[in-house]
């Protein structure tokens, strides 16, 4: 067996999985708290990437150095995306909170289409080059043919974000409020949790993560257009379901499993069947664990 090749595929799958995981975290958080599949999440990721592109171009013109451009562009993208996430929730989901569950779902799909077309009209339908904001680290040079600095940074960011989120939910006040809202919204309200604020916070955090993903992934791939959010969103959503939607470590695990499946299917079988393998795996896992790998199966109270 060719171990170097195996290892390259493993790392490639890890990067791809981390990309899915960064976006999947937003899906899973929102679902965990209000049981809504936020289809507009992929679009928030795309808007984050666009904002970072515009900011990076402006900052580069002002003559800033690479690191400052990366940090400032990310901050601008995070703020902008968070604002979008906040607004989308207020406009499209909050008025429908008491409505049947299908209504906010349709509203989410509508929001997704709206945001895509908004960027298409306001910006362009063309592919745009995205500068590699992540610098090539010098000590990485000897192994650059196996894994690039950008890939390492994507993997590390995903790990750090996952740990921080878990800590936030387990040990902080807002985390406790989130768990309470997730368990029983009206009971949480009765004991004095400001449910609206908790939900808004969730959207803001999820959207900020999508923006981080947007900056890192676009800078790794090197190009963006208005449609990138759709495909990334579908794959990330699949990862979230695979890992157990609602579970933070589940989203990351789901992303990794999906990334590895695709990478090894391409590497050892054929990339023609990449998606076939990915979705066949999804079906198999859902047959044996309907709630996903790390999902808890909740019994409905009658």
């Amino acid at each position: 067996m060719d171990w170097e090749y195996f290892f390259e595929l493993l790392l490639g799958g890890l990067t791809r999985g981390s990309i899915y995981a960064l976006i999947a975290l937003g899906y899973t958080m929102v679902y965990g708290i209000i049981e809504l599949i936020n289809f507009a999440h992929g679009e928030i990721y795309m808007i984050g990437a666009f904002t970072a592109l515009i900011a990076a171009n402006v900052l580069t013109m002002l003559g800033m150095n690479e690191l400052a451009v990366l940090v400032l562009a990310s901050v601008v993208a995070i703020l902008y995306s968070a604002a979008y996430g906040f607004t989308v929730e207020k406009i499209a989901y909050k008025p429908l909170r008491q409505a049947p569950r299908l209504s906010p779902l349709i509203s989410a799909i509508g929001m997704s289409i709206f945001l895509q077309n908004y960027v298409l009209l306001a910006q362009t339908s063309d592919f745009l080059p995205f500068p590699s904001l992540i610098p090539e680290l010098e000590f990485m040079e000897p192994i650059a043919h196996i894994i690039s600095s950008a890939e390492v940074i994507i993997i590390l960011t995903t790990a750090v974000v996952m740990i921080l989120l878990t800590l936030l939910i387990k040990y902080t006040r807002i985390g406790k409020a989130m768990r309470a809202t997730a368990q029983d919204r009206s009971m949480a309200m009765l004991v004095g949790v400001n449910v609206n604020r908790v939900i808004s916070t969730t959207f803001v955090i999820g959207s900020a993560l999508a923006a981080v993903g947007g900056v890192l992934i676009a800078s790794h791939i090197g190009m963006i257009n208005f449609y990138i959010g759709f495909i990334a969103g579908i794959k990330a959503f699949t990862a979230a379901v695979l890992g157990g939607i609602g579970s933070i470590p589940g989203a990351v695990l789901g992303g990794m499993v999906l990334g590895w499946t695709e990478s090894f299917a391409t590497g050892y079988v054929s990339s023609d069947y990449e998606d076939v393998f990915a979705f066949a795996l999804l079906v198999i896992i859902l047959i044996f664990r309907p709630a996903g790998i790390l999902g808890r199966s909740t019994t409905q109270k009658v």
Partner: peptide
């Protein structure tokens, strides 16, 4: 001889191949 999926987030596996 391989087909790739248009729009996929990255093609590193195909490139390795």
């Amino acid at each position: 001889y391989e087909g790739v999926t248009p729009g996929a987030v990255d093609y590193s596996a195909v490139v390795q191949k």
